[in-house]
Design a binder for these strands. Structure first.
Length: 927
RNA sequence: GGGCGAAUAGCUCAGUUGGUUAGAGCGCCUGUCUUACACACAGGAUGUCGGGGGUUCGAGUCCCUCUUCGCCCACCA
């Protein structure tokens, strides 16, 4: 038989592409709402909502991991008989997309969005998204994702925009959305406010400047002429409206109510008493800048102080109307950081800079452009989160929703317990415009589901709020807005909500996951899913997160092109412990993805062997084969299959809680993908390929009934292996399965039932041939060890005498399997009652089975003596420890019965083994 | 500053409520193109389970402590 070279086998990307098209066009991934039991159908629904990638994203390895995990789960459930829906989509990604288009505009046309104007800019962005927006979803197909593309969603469609407005209006009606005047995080590059979550902390070493603030009027007693304040941001001093001391601080009690002459700005500000001032920090005196610091804002409110803004939206020093006279001419228009340096110099020159010390603190940065965020007083829309957080906390505490890995639950609870109101307005153009209109004459804003043209109260002109909503305000509705909400009669909503598992990275636990849970309870009155699975991050060998900008990324499509999507998927899944990061080396893609590549090749080779040796005769169904025709090897592999199915099921499941909440026994189980991968790999490779295929080789060449039995079992177990592996490696398994006899002509493996164990308890029947085959394996292992130990070349056919020491049954089994054992070890086997021990004989014990192997002229007797004596010593040591343990009353009385029993059994086994070993030593070494 | 987690073979990690001689993949060493597969087969080596203390008949597993890393949160000017 001629075999194609390996290189031909390892270029699967082309066939994968056409295979995917077949799946897609045949509708294999489309879910049918009418089959959900919730709408009167016959199947449990199982739904996964894809975390929508940003519409401008291109696929990176993080998406690859995320999509693979989701695909494994959804394919498993689809085969297991659920009506499985994996709903894909994209996010319009307000700031991110606007930034992309603005950069493009600046690069290509040297224009800003203001040059274009709002309407033209939005049109431009819409066109850009239309042209490029489908890229990532197309790329996700390339790794085999079995999404229902007929339901592809996008957060900016009319349908989802309607849901956004509905949510806004409802929350406003309940009084949970309000307009707030306070200090928020402002990005002076994106020119928008940010939520707390979007302003990320980064540790930096800055300077703490100690500045002398002179008293405005020299005190009568001449005691104290100035105070010293400490600040990390001297430029904000122009907006100071007071200095505060603690009311109980004896050092400054006399100053309260006096006035300071603010340097540079030259205005008089009061010394106030407020508990916010910490006597232990610095000098105990703190400057108060209400418009540029959230704490100071609170102090200012308590003391009814003015709140002058001294910076422009773009971060340059500027005098607002209520800051008149505070910003000197030379600083106006100067960047905030340049102004900081300038002010420090001025203070130094005038002797007011007491000292400067290095200061480690954390500074907030814009999560989109990394600009240092400026706290800034402004008017924004907020959502009151505390009422929404309550049911979300309750659900996780009571097991209605579980978060895996468990440790993230504490993080979730911690965040929700201290939740703060959500700033949802953004000063951007790309997004859902806030559905609020203002009448020129009437005082109250109009909040409306529909566009408003005229004021409903006075009929006058109205103007819509300029701002758009935070991107995440549409994302948090995703589990139901994509299914038709607010139309509660929608078929999809009835059939598929609540969804089942939410699979994402921990980075967006607060941005998205927690808010979806809150949104689900608020708008649907029900949890959006019962399980949150937070998978790890893909990192390089230095444990640095992979990203294109860091230059350590791996393009999943390169991997797909080189080794196939299956190799990518298998490698990622096999390496994915619960919540653990996946480490791959971008410098050695070949090495990194070798596990997947090798495994796929192995599968293909098993398939090739089976298909080329099967012949064209009809293959019998395993169920129709009389039990007595099954060989020990047949029974063994069928047993192993049952074990593999059980292992896979317990690694993956249960798919859903049995009741309304997770039972404590199941709360932490399931979704252990690497264990599932290992269980199926072990079956296919270590058991099916390494042992069963080898064991059938002789039988396939011979004829008769036994050949058909072997063919039947072979096809059965391989078919089952392909089913078990389909969720991980869908392409190669489908390709092989299609060639296997006995499947429906138009069927697809993706839709075939998940395998079920033949027997409920695989190992219960000890008389079964399956366990008898273990004796054959042990014997073969022992013989191979001997061969290797004595460096007998594999080609050399040798004679071996096996002496079964266990019992009559063992003797019979070995007798009957002698031919197979001989073929697997290239020995001619004799089973005898006594071994011809002596100078030219060698014997080894394995599992209680004595095997004597005469190896004429090969054995070095001296070396063998040493080896046997070493083995004996080792055994003695272990045995004495065992005996000691069994003599210990504490052990025998307190340890569970099965443990003690196992130890007793072991003691007798080891004892027998020791007996034989020492006999052998005596015979061979003569002492 | 608050909260959480991790440390097991050269590397990446499993190790379920304490209970056989602590496992897997990759890497490493030896041999082999044994009629599916050298991306393979066969054999092999490698672990004071981070240090110390404790509970227990028994600890990788539970408790305390130290060390080292990591993650999340944070309104210390």
């Amino acid at each position: 038989m001629t075999t194609p070279p390996i290189t031909e086998l390892s270029k699967p990307s082309a066939t994968e592409r056409s295979r995917y098209q077949q799946w897609e066009t045949s509708g294999a991934f489309i879910a049918d709402a009418s089959r959900s039991v919730r709408s009167g159908g016959d199947r449990e629904p199982f739904t996964i909502m894809m975390p929508p990638p940003n519409v401008t994203d291109i696929l990176h390895v993080g998406h690859g991991l995320n999509s693979t995990v989701q695909d494994v789960i959804i394919r498993w459930r689809r085969m297991a008989g659920d009506e499985a829906l994996w709903l894909p989509g994209t996010d319009h990604a307000g700031i991110a997309t606007q930034n992309v288009v603005e950069k493009k505009l600046a690069r290509e046309e040297k224009k800003t969005r203001f040059d274009l104007g709002r309407e033209a800019f939005v049109a431009r962005t819409t066109a850009f998204v239309a042209a490029t927006g489908g890229t990532i979803l197309q790329q996700i197909r390339g790794i085999g994702a079995s999404c229902d593309w007929s339901r592809t969603a996008y957060t900016l469609t009319p349908e989802l925009s309607r849901a956004v407005r509905e949510a806004f209006v409802r929350l406003h009606e309940k009084g949970l959305i309000y307009r707030g005047h306070r200090v928020i995080h402002w990005c002076s590059r994106c020119l928008t406010s940010l939520s707390d979550e979007e302003a990320e902390h980064k540790d930096e070493t800055g300077s703490l400047y100690h500045i002398t603030y002179p008293l405005a009027d020299a005190p009568a007693d001449g005691s104290m002429t100035s105070v010293t304040v400490a600040t990390t941001r001297p430029e904000t001093m122009l907006g100071d409206v007071a200095v505060a001391v603690h009311p109980d601080d004896p050092r400054y009690r006399a100053l309260i109510g006096k006035e300071i002459l603010l340097p540079i700005a030259g205005v008089r500000i009061p010394v106030i008493a407020d508990a916010y001032a910490d006597p232990a920090f610095g000098t105990g005196v703190v400057k108060i800048t209400p418009a540029h610091d959230p704490n100071d804002f609170e102090v200012g409110r308590r003391h009814s102080l003015p709140m002058p803004i001294v910076m422009s939206p773009t971060g340059e020093m500027e005098e607002s109307a209520d800051a008149a006279g505070r910003v000197p001419a030379n600083l106006r228009g100067m960047d905030r950081f340049a102004a900081r340096a300038e002010i420090v110099e001025t203070l130094r020159a005038s002797g007011l800079l007491a000292r400067v010390e290095p200061h480690a603190h954390s500074v907030r940065h814009c999560y989109r452009c990394d600009t240092v965020v400026e706290p800034r007083l402004s008017d924004q829309w907020f959502v009151s989160m505390e009422p929404l957080a309550r049911p979300a906390l309750e659900a996780v505490r009571t097991g209605g929703i579980r978060i895996l890995p468990e440790r993230w639950e504490a993080v979730y609870v911690n965040w929700l317990e201290g939740i703060r109101d959500w700033n949802i307005s953004r000063q951007l153009w790309w997004g859902h415009r806030i559905p609020v209109w203002y009448c020129a004459t009437c005082p109250d804003p109009i909040v409306s589901r529909d566009d408003v043209a005229l004021c409903p109260r006075c009929g006058g002109a109205v103007r819509q709020d300029d701002d758009v909503l935070d991107t995440w305000f549409s994302s948090w509705l995703w589990p139901f807005s994509t299914l038709g909400w607010p139309d509660t009669a929608s078929r999809d909503l009835r059939a598929f909500y609540p969804t089942d598992v939410l699979i994402t990275a921990p980075e967006i636990l607060f941005f998205w996951v927690a808010r979806m849970i809150m949104g689900g309870f608020e708008f649907m009155g029900e949890r959006p899913f019962h399980t949150v699975y937070l998978h790890g991050t893909v990192r390089d060998t230095q444990h640095v997160k992979m990203s294109k900008s860091r230059g350590n990324g791996i393009d999943p499509l390169v991997v797909v092109d080189r080794y196939g999507a299956d190799a990518l998927r298998y490698t990622l899944v096999a390496g994915l412990g619960m919540g653990a990061d996946v480490i791959v080396d971008p410098g050695d893609i070949d090495q990194s993805f070798a596990p997947g590549r090798n495994f796929v090749t192995k599968l293909r080779n098993i398939g090739r062997f089976i298909l080329t040796n099967l012949g064209d005769d009809p293959v019998p169904d395993v169920a129709s084969i009389p039990a007595e025709q099954l060989t020990r090897a047949d029974r063994w592999i069928l047993d192993r299959l049952d074990v593999a199915i059980a292992d896979a099921n317990s690694a993956l499941g249960p798919a859903r809680p049995s009741g309304p909440a997770w039972d404590s026994s199941e709360l932490r189980s399931g979704l252990r993908l690497s264990e599932y991968a290992e269980a199926t790999r072990r079956f296919a490779w270590s058991e099916l390929a390494d042992w069963y295929v080898e064991a059938t080789k002789g039988r396939l060449l011979a004829g008769g009934v036994d050949r058909d039995v072997a063919r039947g079992v072979l096809v059965h177990v391989f078919d089952a292996a392909l089913r078990l592996l389909q969720p991980i490696v869908p392409f190669v398994t489908e390709e092989l399965w299609q060639q296997l006899p006995g499947h429906p002509a138009e069927g697809t493996l993706a839709r075939v039932p998940w395998p079920e164990a033949r027997r409920a308890t695989p190992d219960a029947d000890s008389a079964n041939g399956g366990s008898q085959f273990e004796l054959v394996r042990e014997t073969v292992d022992a013989l191979r060890q001997l061969r290797s130990e004595y460096a007998v070349t594999p080609q050399k056919l040798i004679a071996a005498v096996i002496v079964p020491s266990r019992d009559v049954a063992a003797r019979r089994i070995l007798d009957e399997e002698a031919a197979l054992i001989g073929r697997l070890t290239r020995c001619t086997i004799t089973v005898a009652d006594a071994a011809p021990l002596g100078t030219a004989a060698h014997a080894v014990l394995s599992g209680g089975t004595g095997i004597a192997v005469p190896l004429e002229g090969i054995i070095d007797v001296k070396r063998e003596c040493q080896r046997l004596q070493g083995e004996l010593e080792q055994l003695d040591k272990q045995l004495s420890a065992l005996v000691q343990r069994l003599a210990n009353e504490g052990f025998t009385s307190r340890a569970p019965a099965h443990v003690v029993e196992a130890e007793r059994r072991k003691e007798s086994e080891w004892g027998a083994r020791r007996q034989q070993l020492s006999e052998k030593v005596r015979a061979l070494c003569g002492s």
